[in-house]
Design a binder for these strands. Sequence first.
DNA 1: ATTATGTTACTGACGGGTCAGTAACATGTT
DNA 2: AACATGTTACTGACCCGTCAGTAACATAAT
Lengths: 228, 228
Amino acid sequence: MSSPHESAAFPEPRWRRLPEERPQQIIDAALAEFGDRGLAGTRLEDIAKRAGLSKGTIYLYFPNKEELFREVVRRNVVSQLEENERRLGEQAVSATEALTDYMRRYWTFIRSSKFAPLFRLIHAEIHNFPDLARFYAEEVVARGQRLIAGIITRGIETGEFRDVDPFVAARMLAAPFVMHGLWCTHRECFTSVAKKTDEQVLDELMQFYLHAIQPCTCNSRSKSVSTQ
Amino acid sequence: MSSPHESAAFPEPRWRRLPEERPQQIIDAALAEFGDRGLAGTRLEDIAKRAGLSKGTIYLYFPNKEELFREVVRRNVVSQLEENERRLGEQAVSATEALTDYMRRYWTFIRSSKFAPLFRLIHAEIHNFPDLARFYAEEVVARGQRLIAGIITRGIETGEFRDVDPFVAARMLAAPFVMHGLWCTHRECFTSVAKKTDEQVLDELMQFYLHAIQPCTCNSRSKSVSTQ
DNA sequence: ATTATGTTACTGACGGGTCAGTAACATGTT
DNA sequence: AACATGTTACTGACCCGTCAGTAACATAAT
């Protein structure tokens, strides 16, 4: 009644002005669409629809489709970076603890809804956008592996791990995590992980990997392979 | 320069009729193009050009682009299958030998020019062609992992390998191989394998994996196993 | 607190280029 | 000659990017 805006007649405006939020909305929608259909297969109208906008609005914030694609990759890679290097300070704990902790966070990221689309995108368009690919490979992959290698080096020094090349070991950690992440996003296809929960898969990954880098488990009791 | 003055002798036909070879030529060219640019991003004219044909010819052998795509995947998946299960009979050798032999052949296949494009294709279009994806996942991935699991099971029985879930171990083998295959196809990006040859990478993979499934290497080799 | 005026955010129809698919024509083969 | 195989030129649908127009919001004036 007392409201100057007529509540009965026009309660819902057809659209709202949200210039601050638009870029992120568009990027999120674009990641989803690009991830499903690829760069060439995605229509800007579909991105707009998913973001609840019209196509023209996208061009208010991004010069063209390709530049939007670049921003989608860059923004998400950067956010992955930040996520990756959060909580890096606790060097007090044992290398094993640091490693299992890292694996847990790594797995959480890989199983997040953003990883698989991003991975597909980068690998699908790696030829057409070598600069993006290089950025990703250097700033995320290599950087992450240096991080892991650091933990492993410490573990070797303390005698927790056997004497392996830390960078080889880092790749041997990342590879199964990534592949299992991809498989788990298509459980309906990949029967080998179909009946397993994310937690189970993580446990298997961790157990197997820890055994691979531990010097020897003869003396300790390691009968923890549980089969239902 | 194309003045056909020497018309009588051999006019050098502008093209030849090779109906037997065309399908495979087209499929090979299509795999390469699709692998680079994706399904939507590939022009049929580019496939034709790569195959040394004109676009219309493709339509003599395939009804449309999508069906060509399906055939590309199917044909190559089947050939991968055949490759995969060749030389499977030698059950006389030790499980370790069988496994290292398998890993060598697996790596050769993964490093062949056909694997990476096929992998990218399947993972890029997995949503749009669920039947193909399922076919691939079941007939190639699962089947291959059953094969590995069989070898590992035998190795566990003979005491060569520690007591792991053979299917977990199979996944833990396949995952690093596939990921390293992808990385190695983009050595210019992925610096962690940039300076390594394929043979080096394979050695690292094999050594690391064998250590992961061997029971213990504390007391040298010739560890007596009381099975009888 | 209503109206007038101005500004910003957004819309959606359209032009133009691209490309899958086709039809008309050409050449090799038998 | 008659057919099979291949090429070239063309069509029409589709989609990117543009822009004239409109809705939401802001501020000033009455």
